[in-house]
Structure formats: structure tokens, C-alpha cells
Design a protein around this nucleic acid. Sequence first.
RNA 1: GAUGACCCCCUCC
Length: 315
Amino acid sequence: VVTHSLMLWQMLKARQIGQAWKLFEEMKLNGRVPDVIAYSILVAGFAKAGALQEARKVFDEMKEKGVAPNLHTYNGYLDGLVKTRQMEQACNLFQEMQENGTGADAYTYTTLLDGFVKVGRIQEARNLYQELNEKGCSPDVVTYSVLILGLRKGGQAKKALQILNKMKDVGCLPSVMTCNTVMHSLVKAGQMEAALNVFNEMKAGGIAPSVSSFNILLKGLGNWGQVDDACALFEELKASGEVPSEITYNTLIDGLGKAGRTEKAAELFKDMKEKRLAPTRITYNCLINVLAKAGQTDEALTLFEEMKVNGFVPN
RNA sequence: GAUGACCCCCUCC
């Protein structure tokens, strides 16, 4: 049974739903009796693959056969309901778990939280988060990340920062992406110092900033006209071993242009080409704007032609 | 041998 379970698990990870179903039938015909783990693998696997019907079937079958679903099984099925955005059903299942003594762990709460956050039911997500804490469940990295990523949409920079700080307090190491999300919110909210703070803390905490981290800050510094700081950060980026992307150049060119540093912007454009980074439509847009604003109409027109030659459609 | 997020984070208009 263990061997078969492993095979089922691998098939489901590869989303081979039909195959997994066949193997499951076969193993039963051969007289092997699936246990809780085997059933749970199937429920979770089908649920994750979006095959909720099969998950349901397996879930019912195990109950019929007298195999009691455990927390893993319920969590797997709950995930299926959440993935298909059936939040009412998910809540009912959660209720059932509490009533029949299965209980809930961090996985249960995080799965539900993720669902609420994804459908924009933030208040319910908050309540659930509170309940989780009251029940003495420890939120983990994933729980916190779900919250932070979920708060991304509504200008909730302060809140996101609070959660990030809490993560550090309890010793959860946030991922680079989670940090980036928070920095992005802060930059959008105009909280540049706070964003830089996060950046410094992540470095101090041993989390290596990615190109995107730099890009986010470059954009923020550009917005505030702090182009010298932006250039310094650009140097730091190159020194860090990360490779500047087209987006890095676009962002910096745009920032420099807005600050009236036309020559420096043009210089970067050259630098970009030397690095064999292909300018994008956005690069051209930025630089043309810069040149036009500086009254360098001829240069702007030249660039406009170059843009069309390279197959970009001006907007 | 089994369960959760991100992995379509960043740039012009």
C-alpha cells in the first residue's frame, strides 16, 4: 500500500488524474486496502489538480469503508473547495471539522485565509486570523505571506509592514518576494524611508535582495527626484552580483528624465545596448518623453524612427 | 508514504 501510495502521489503531482484513478482502482482489485494516508493523498492530489469531483468521491468512499478522515484529509479537501472558490462550502467543512473533533491547524487556517483574501473578503480573513491566534495555533511563514500578499491590493502598506515586522519578531524568515511586496506597497504609499528600512533590514537578516527589490526602490527614489541616491543604488545593484534588467534601465531612465538629467539618461540607454539588453517599447517611450521635454526634438524623432525599425508600435 | 501561499513581485502612457 505504501508503494502504491507513493506512486499515486507522484502521478497526482504530475496532474495525471486519469492514471491515478486507474491505479487506485487496480490496487483495490488486487486486494490492497487503502489506509487513511492513501486516501488523503488522493483527496489532496485531486483537489489540488482541480478535480474536485474525484476528491469528493474519494472522500465519501473512505467514510463508507469506515476509514475516518483525519486533519490531513480534511485540509486537502478544504484546499479543493478554496481553489474552486466555493467559500461557503469551505466554511461548512471548517464548521464540520470543529464539530466532529478534527479541529484545525495552521494549514487549515492558512488555506481558508488564502481563500478569503483571494475573493476579497478581507474582514473575514482578519477575523479568521484573530481566531487562529486565540486558538493558540502558531501562524507560520506561509500564513504571514498569504496575509501580506493579500493586503497588496488595497493600499494597506502600514498593515503589511506590521505583519512583516511581526514575522521577524517570531523568527519567521520572509521570502524576497514577500519583502518586495511590502516595499512596493510602501513606495506606492510614498513611505520611502520605511521602504529603505525594509531593504536594509533584509540585507542585515541575510535575505539577498533580487533585481526586483532594487527596481522597486529605484522607482521610489525616482519618484522623489532622489536621482543621485538612485544612481548609487544602481551601483550597489551591480556590485551585488545581481544583473540589471531592462526594467532596471527603464525605471532609472524614466527617473533621470523626470529630474531633467537628460544626458545621464541617454548615457544609460547606450550602456544598456552595450550590455546587449534590448530596449523595449517602454524604454523608447521613456527616453522619447525625456528628449521631447528637454527640447531635443531631433533626437526624439531619430529615436522614434529607430523604435519603428525595431518593430515597436508607438502609442 | 499524505495537507496550505507566492513562484504572471518591479518599469512608460
